[in-house]
């Protein structure tokens, strides 16, 4: 089977290996690195990670599926994860979610047909003092409100 992960991925793993007493401990870092590279974790990717670490692919999926940050399905170019936990919901996060749904024409959990945007509700991001907060790919956007969301979306090319 042709490899899906790059030389860079393997180089990064090689560097991390001496940091841990077991090879299995590389699993979370490997899943992160693979996702950074490919956007999501396909069965092929997980199988390749499994054979690199020396574990059954089922063990890879068992772990990957436990954590919400690992995308086991493809996501859009921009992955919006809006926190709706206590502090954010007290500060109006659900209004922002609703607004974003309308604006993007998709519901929470969906991806726009042009594969540009995926929208998710997120659990507490640890940014409650600047609530509501969201993650846009790997970055935080804080003190969110409808206006700020519009600005963010405008920058990403959403009109109106």
């Amino acid at each position: 089977m042709a490899k899906v992960l790059s030389e860079k991925f393997y180089a990064e793993m090689k560097k991390l290996e001496p940091r841990y007493p077991t090879k299995v401990a590389l699993l979370l870092p490997a899943l992160h690195a693979a996702q950074d590279e490919l956007g999501w974790l396909s069965s092929e990717t997980m199988e390749e990670i499994g054979s690199y670490i020396g574990i059954h692919p089922a063990q890879v999926k068992e772990v990957a599926s436990f954590y919400t940050m690992y995308n086991l399905k493809p996501v859009g170019k921009y992955h919006l994860k809006i926190c709706t936990n206590v502090a954010c919901c007290l500060r109006g996060a659900y209004d922002v979610v609703e607004h974003t749904e309308k604006k993007l024409g998709i519901k929470v959990g969906q991806t726009t047909p042009d594969k540009q945007f995926t929208l998710h509700e997120e659990e507490c991001l640890g940014a409650c003092g600047t609530a509501p907060a969201m993650m846009l790919n790997n970055d935080y956007v804080e003190n969110l409100d409808i206006r700020k969301m519009d600005e963010v979306l405008a920058k990403l090319g959403v009109k109106g």
């Binding site: 401990a25 979370l28 899943l31 992160h32 436990f66 954590y67 919400t68 659990e123």
Partner: peptide, 12 residues
């Protein structure tokens, strides 16, 4: 002493 940052992946 060797110190390593290990990232979680979304699990309370």
């Amino acid at each position: 002493f060797d110190l390593t940052v290990h990232r979680g992946a979304g699990a309370y």
